[in-house]
Design a protein around this nucleic acid. Structure first.
Length: 846
RNA sequence: GCCGAAGUGGCGGAACUGGCAGACGCGACAGACUCAAAAUCUGUUGCCGGUCACCCGGCGUGGGGGUUCGAGUCCCCCCUUCGGCACCA
């Protein structure tokens, strides 16, 4: 008996794979490709169990597809720019470059010890100038097409990180990274026009058939398309000035009894000047703008507002209505102004009641008048219009069409589509990111850096203080430049890009990672992309995954890629918990992957994280579970060890026709092929890795029982010695040989180190890399006899053992002849017999 | 508030289009081996009950109703948990 020491196997086979450059991929049009990708990692310094699970799932797919003959691209890289490295620099004085490189080296070692089959030749880090150079290149292309532009706007400012955040990066009013409450600031920044693709990004969600419904829903929600109309209300005092409102309910416009402006609305400033007490007016506006966001965090915010003293004319009714400022109207959405219809909108209703503003009901269920004084809440349902001039009596839907047409014909409105999605602000006032490649020249304005001068390389910065503006602004040699247009002095942009820019296209770069002439060769991308299988956490459902879909379309419109969607199949894996909580240093519940690998080997760890639950569910870490996986591998080891001498002696097996198998032996073949079928489907089609593993475990259990029944005894049994040495039937050895060789290959994607070793010990040449995935033989898997349960009134009372192809008539006859069945039927009349062929018989009695 | 997902043994989880609920693993219990223990091998393990010896009966997939010969699975109502969005006009 050879002892099972998985740690030795890990070392041996990892070395072999490295020496053989086993997982490097090259374009090969003759073979079908499979691009398997796990979300690349931020090099925090240490891989955690979440990483282990993520990469283990991907590696099972990659290794299986490779054995199935696919040309597999399975790369890895580093999302290496970002704030933590810079914050560490401020705190400890280590340059981000140094700490990042050190972290990468350490984490790469950890992944290699896990035995993930990456093509390390394509490794990249986004902080490589040869990578971020193409961020800059793409930014300039986007600038040329008007997709990158500069805008002064209210931005989310994180006081903890000293930088601006995109809307997607604000979670519950706080910074997604450090949690500090976000402040609003006015700032000029670079934006990417993702809204130009809003409609397409939304519509194409329906084509993402292999994405989790949850993610699609989140994206739909995030884009937030609503159809409606813009309508302009002229000021009563100045008909040349209009207030434009956005509404999805133009059918209620005859009930609009006042107009509300967001505190941020541009007209508010001019109204203040006209007010009897401008200072008091401005003070109230200011109160709204500052109090607003903080108050919203605490939940209930009371609707508040005040009269501007101005009046606007409802273009449909000609009525002059008051204009108020309201704290609940959002400056960033729509036009920043709404027509209030208190009878049909709950918010307006509350506002009107509070301030005694008039209410008019104009859409009711049956088209009859309703007394607004009797309302206790707004009627927001569609219905039939009433008191709406020429539109009275129309149903809401038809009225909306006619009213939009009416507004258009008279020039005071039109139908529009409004999105919740906003353009992506990418300027960050930090050092450790991609420099935005533009120059500011007094004569030529904004001038992009010429392609020939790329990359704009980050200057070495000696000191990180964390104070002041962007660190780059404090480096004169960086800031002071020459205008490429006029040759005069120019000032360089000192903001860097949001790191989500880096991660929005790295999967293209992997297709051609060493290209120094372009971001990637379109031909390589045409071969490898789209990504066939993408695994990562749900936390990227709207950030990374929506940005990447946007960038795919930008590259498409640049003629560099020919698809719309970059990821065909998406799997969002669940988190790894300990004691019901996410592992974290502060909670002290971190389980260190390295320690686990030292204890039980890489394979046991890999197997555990995929076996314990379906990939998309969260899992609870238990040491016992890991030990169970180790035990299973040891069990497989003993089984193969027990039989290997006989199997090697017998070679790869005679033709089945020359053998005459016993029923037990046929049953083993049936189990073997049934398992091949199940594992292939569970991994390849359903990604139910946990049930694939349990199928393999069942096979192993069957082989132990079968060993027990043969003269060899079960592997490792105390009575092993009693039976050892007896001659085995050629048939037994053939059946075992087939089963064991299938077992080792089926298990190989999950536990590659152990399986490589076992494969070698079985006398197989060339390693698992050249081994083919076992082939399913339907004939061998076919069952001869089946057990059919017989129910009486839906309760199982007996079982029949019959030929698999027994007819319905036979089943009915046998069921009614069965003693146990008849004793339950007794003297009752048999009303009918339901036969589900091959499945069940149900005898229904009165 | 709106949208979505999920509730199955002591635990993690199985169950393809309605057809033997609880595969597989963890834990627990027993036997074999051992001076003994560990490891290993072999069993048992949903709950309740009955002259529980390996036999029999009843109940059982969050709760209540329904469709069906038959429901974890389909329909209606309710409860709970988790996730997303949240004054979006």
């Amino acid at each position: 008996m050879t002892p099972f020491v998985p740690q030795d196997l890990d070392r041996k086979w990892q070395q072999r794979w490295t020496d053989d450059r086993a997982f490097e991929a090259a374009v090969d049009p003759a073979r079908p490709k499979f691009y398997c990708l796990e979300m690349f990692a931020y090099p925090s310094g240490h891989a955690h169990m979440g990483h282990v699970r993520n990469y283990s799932i991907g590696d099972v797919l990659a290794r299986m597809k490779r054995m199935q003959g696919f040309n597999v691209l399975h790369p890895f890289g580093w999302d290496a720019f970002g704030l933590p490295a810079e914050n560490a620099a401020i705190k400890h004085g280590i340059h981000p470059e140094a700490s990042t490189r050190g972290n990468i080296a350490h984490m790469k070692g950890q992944l290699q010890r896990l035995g993930i089959s990456y093509d390390w030749d394509r490794e990249l880090a986004t902080c490589d100038p040869e990578y971020y150079r193409w961020n800059q290149w793409l930014f300039i292309r986007m600038f040329e097409k008007g997709l990158a532009y500069r805008k002064r706007s209210t931005v989310n400012w994180c006081p903890g990180c000293h930088t601006v955040l995109a809307n997607e990066q604000v979670v519950d009013g706080g910074c997604w990274r450090c949690g500090s409450p976000v402040e609003l600031r006015e700032r000029e920044q670079w934006c990417l026009r993702i809204t130009a693709y809003a409609d397409e990004l939304l519509g194409a969600i329906d084509t993402l058939a292999e994405w989790p419904e949850k993610v699609l829903m989140m994206q739909r929600n995030w884009i937030g398309r609503s159809e409606g109309a813009r309508v302009r209300f002229a000021l009563a005092s100045d008909p040349g000035t209009t207030i434009e409102v956005f509404t999805t309910r133009i059918d209620t416009i005859f009930g609009s009894t006042f107009v509300l402006l967001a505190p941020e609305h541009p007209l508010v400033t001019s109204f203040a000047a006209l007010a009897p007490d401008p200072d008091a007016f401005r003070a109230r506006v200011h109160a709204f703008r500052t109090q607003d966001r903080a108050a919203r965090l605490s939940g209930e915010v009371e609707k508040d507002g005040f009269d501007t003293g101005q009046r606007a004319v409802n273009p449909f009714t000609g009525a002059s209505v008051p204009v108020w400022v309201a704290n609940f109207v959002l400056g960033e959405y729509g036009t920043g102004a709404v027509m209030a219809v208190p009878a049909h909108d709950q918010r307006d209703f509350e506002f009107a009641r509070r301030f005694g503003l008039p209410i008019a009901a104009v859409v009711t269920a049956d088209g009859a008048r309703v007394d607004p004084d009797g309302l206790s809440e707004a009627m927001d349902a569609y219905g039939t219009l009433v008191d709406s001039g020429p539109f009275s009596g129309l149903p809401s839907a038809e009225a909306q069409q006619r009213m939009v047409a009416h507004a258009g014909a008279n020039g005071f409105g039109e139908g529009t589509v409004q999105f919740r999605l906003k353009d992506w602000g990418i300027s960050r006032q930090r050092y450790w990111g991609t420099p935005i490649p533009v120059l500011f020249c007094d004569t030529d304005g904004i001038v992009p850096v010429p392609d020939a001068d790329l990359p704009v390389v980050l200057p070495p910065v000696a000191e990180f203080t964390g104070r002041g503006d962007s660190p780059l602004a404090q480096v004169p040699a960086f800031v002071n430049a020459t205008c490429p247009a006029c040759g005069g002095p120019a000032r360089r942009e000192t903001d860097t890009m949001d790191t989500f820019v880096d991660s929005s296209w790295y999967f293209y770069r992997f297709a051609d990672a060493r290209n120094n002439a372009q971001a990637f060769d379109p031909a390589a991308v045409k071969y490898w992309l789209p990504v066939d299988f993408y695994v990562g956490g749900v936390e990227h459902a709207i950030l990374h995954l929506i940005y990447s879909r946007f960038f795919a379309r930008v590259f498409r419109d640049l003629g560099m890629v020919d698809h719309d969607e970059p990821f065909t199949h998406l799997l969002t894996q669940g988190m790894v918990l300990k004691d019901g909580a996410v592992m974290s240093k502060s909670k002290g519940n971190v389980v260190d992957p390295d320690a686990m690998m030292q204890k039980h080997g890489a394979d046991a760890l890999r197997l555990y994280v995929v076996f314990v639950a379906p990939p998309e569910k969260e899992i609870e870490w238990t040491d016992e579970g890991l030990e169970g996986s180790w035990r299973f591998l040891a069990r497989v080891w003993r089984l193969v060890d027990h039989w290997s001498a006989a199997l090697v002696r017998a070679g790869n097996g005679p033709a089945w026709e020359t053998l005459s198998l016993s029923p037990d032996e046929r049953a083993v073949r049936r189990k073997t092929h049934g398992t091949i079928h199940r594992v292939t489907a569970d991994v390849g089609e359903r990604q139910q890795l946990n049930t694939a593993v349990s199928a393999i475990m069942e096979l192993v259990n069957t082989l132990y029982s079968f060993s027990d029944a043969t003269m060899t005894g079960p592997p490792g049994a105390a009575r092993d010695a009693d039976r050892g040495g007896r001659a085995e039937r050629a048939e037994t050895v053939a059946v075992m040989g087939e089963a064991v060789r299938a077992l080792v290959r089926l298990l190989a994607p999950f536990a590659p180190h152990v399986c490589e070793e076992l494969w070698e010990r079985l006398g197989q040449e060339g390693g698992l890399r050249v081994a083919r995935w076992p082939e399913y033989d339907a004939a061998a898997a076919r069952v001869e006899a089946i057990v059919v349960p017989v129910q009486v009134n839906g309760k199982v009372r007996s079982r029949l053992t019959v030929a698999a192809n027994a007819s319905e008539a036979d089943l009915e006859r046998l069921a009614l002849a069965d003693a146990a069945v008849m004793s339950h039927v007794g003297t009752k009349r048999v009303r009918k017999v339901v036969v589900a062929r091959g499945r069940l018989v149900n005898v229904v009695v009165a």
